[in-house]
Amino acid sequence: MSPFLITRTLPEETTDAALRADVRRGLTRTPKTLPPKWFYDAHGSDLFEKITELPEYYPARAERELLIASSADIAAVTGARTLIELGSGSSEKTRHLLDALADLDTYVPVDVSESALTRAGHALVEQRPGLNVHALIADFTTGLALPGTPGPRLLAFLGSTIGNLLPRERATLLSSIRSLLSPGDALLLGTDLVKDEPSLIAAYDDAAGVTAAFNKNVLSVLNRELGADFDLDAFEHVVRWDAENEWIEMRLRSRTDQTVKIPALGLAVDFAAGEELRTEVSAKFRQQVVRRELALWGLELTHWWSAGQLCGLALAQPSAAPWPTQGR
């Protein structure tokens, strides 16, 4: 194969249709919600990069350090010749794995952003002449077809992104992942761990207000893409810890009674003063919960690396036991 290939499995019009569907569904229900994926236009991505550098935001820093410490072990255990990364972005998270996997033949980054995949792919083949890169423009949450590549394969889902999915969505994704794995393949899953509430709140409500700007950016996306007239100053950033579900929620709270018009959808959305719009859930995990959820979908937790109570890396392989087909 060519050192760098890129395949689009996500039609170009899909993004606009998905945005319209998510906004219509989320803003006409009670309580109102929006999926966190719409944070990430170019400005939102820049803001998130700034968040990862904040002293309060431990997840990215802790996972990077854990990957550096455990990559050699992961490589030894898996012997992977293909590395597949879901939500690869700039591929920065996996560079330590790429360095450690001595027998690696092919890297398959999967992302919805063609520009991010192209930039990262060209850089990687230049830095690693012997590596084949086959990028996929795809939405892995709606199913995924992988190219034929040599095994064993290691599928990595890092950045604690699994926590942004609600339990039913996690079940669907884990079932889909299990259907992609053959005997000898493995899943490497990055998780943020349950810890004290003040540390969790601070990570999503930094003193500099960068996360607040990131949260409000979703309204800017709706203004630009759908002609909406959200006044960003009319909403305030709110963070809650849900102890029962063990997840952080980011919300936007309306400061006044107001009506927002969204011409592209023919919608007028009323907000009462104090009404909150949920924009993100970020679940935190315990090792036993990760083990149980993986097992439900035919994946056996075989290795676990953790940085205290900051974050964990779970390595799971297909189990021999029968597994359910719901969510396929």
Score class of each variant (00 low, 15 high):
P3R: 14
P3C: 01
I6D: 07
P11F: 02
E12P: 11
A18Q: 13
A21K: 11
D22P: 10
L27Y: 00
R29S: 15
R29N: 10
T33R: 15
K50Y: 00
T52W: 05
E56G: 11
Y58T: 11
R61C: 04
E63G: 11
E63C: 10
L66V: 09
L67T: 12
L67Q: 12
A69R: 15
A72S: 14
A76V: 01
A76C: 02
V77Y: 02
G79S: 06
T82G: 04
E85D: 11
E85T: 08
L86H: 10
G87C: 07
S88Q: 08
G89P: 10
S90G: 05
S91Q: 09
E92Y: 00
L101T: 10
A102Y: 00
A102T: 15
V108I: 13
V108A: 08
V110M: 03
V110T: 06
A116P: 05
A116T: 08
R119K: 13
A120H: 01
L124F: 03
Q127C: 04
P129N: 06
H134Y: 04
A135N: 03
L136A: 05
G151F: 01
L155E: 09
F157E: 06
I162K: 03
E169F: 01
R170F: 01
I177D: 02
L180Y: 03
S182R: 11
L188Q: 05
D196R: 14
S199W: 00
D205T: 08
D206H: 08
D206L: 04
A207W: 03
G209F: 02
A212F: 01
F214C: 10
F214A: 09
L219G: 10
S220R: 13
D229G: 05
L232N: 07
E236C: 11
E249C: 03
R251V: 00
R253Q: 15
T256C: 04
T256H: 13
K261C: 07
A268W: 00
D270G: 03
V281I: 15
R286Q: 13
R286N: 08
L294A: 07
W297N: 15
E300V: 06
E300A: 07
H303E: 14
W305V: 09
S306Q: 15
A307R: 15
L313C: 07
L315I: 03
A320S: 14
